[in-house]
């Protein structure tokens, strides 16, 4: 599903070139549950952004479903990830001005889904996460765990093949964190959704079936 070859990304500071990612070679198959670990500044989030096509590498090639992402134009890339990828963030990143319902609906708006179909899909999702009663609330009126549920619901609404989660439990207490990880596991096993998460926690990493360790922009461990 994902094939990264010789991926490097850097910033220039004066005459020095500082590598954020250096010569990353990585393949991820459909249905995997992968954790990316490593200390702060090791390039975890950068790698996730590159995989998620929010960011581009300066060097190397990236194949997504056999499509050469590194050669695609922005519009085509956006088309690709809109269809296949859902994001979950540590800070939830819900739009404060929109209700729970509207937040979940947003990705569908950008995929030109019909209004009646949108309604059905959002209703399903609200049901699935038991947040029907909260659909008219604004993010500020929810707890962190509830906000993250909405974030996941939003990521799943467009039926993506791949979920990218950047420390999804980082702002939650352990009980809420467990719930979220259970949902991920369930998604991975029952729906066959590929999941890549960035995490600091060994406990969360244990939910996955592969862990990649990064250090200074290089893959240190890949098991």
């Amino acid at each position: 599903m994902i094939k990264l070859e010789h991926i490097s990304k850097w910033v220039n500071q004066g005459n020095n070139r500082i590598f954020l990612l250096k010569d990353i070679n990585l393949g991820i198959e459909e249905g995997e549950f992968v954790s990316i670990m490593g200390p702060s500044g090791s390039g975890k989030s950068t790698l996730l952004n590159v995989v998620g096509m929010l960011d581009t590498a300066d060097e190397g090639s990236y194949q997504f479903y056999d499509q050469p992402v590194h050669t695609l134009k922005e519009k085509q890339r956006s088309q690709l990830y809109k269809q296949h990828i859902g994001f979950v963030f540590q800070a939830y990143h819900l739009i404060d001005e929109l209700t729970v319902y509207e937040n979940i609906e947003t990705p569908l708006l950008y995929q030109d889904t019909k209004s009646s179909e949108r309604k059905a899909l959002v209703a399903d999702m609200l049901d699935r996460f038991n947040i029907v009663g909260k659909k008219d609330l604004f993010p500020a009126q929810l707890s962190g765990g509830q906000q993250q549920l909405v974030g996941i619901a939003r990521a799943l609404i467009a039926k993506p093949k791949l979920i990218l989660a950047d420390e999804p439990t980082g702002n939650l207490n352990s009980k809420q964190g467990e719930e979220i990880m259970d949902i991920f596991t369930q998604l991975n096993r029952e729906d066959g959704v590929t999941i890549i998460q960035v995490t600091h926690s060994e406990k969360n990493a244990a939910y996955s079936n592969r862990i990649i360790h990064l250090l200074d922009g290089r893959i240190e461990h890949n098991r």
Binding site: L54, S78, K82, F87, H93, I95, D96, T106, P107, Y110
Partner: peptide, 16 residues
């Protein structure tokens, strides 16, 4: 800027 960023991640094009 945050709202704009999220919308972009959600798949909004510049034109939209």
């Amino acid at each position: 800027s945050k709202e704009i960023g999220i919308r972009k991640v959600m798949g909004s094009t510049r034109v939209q």
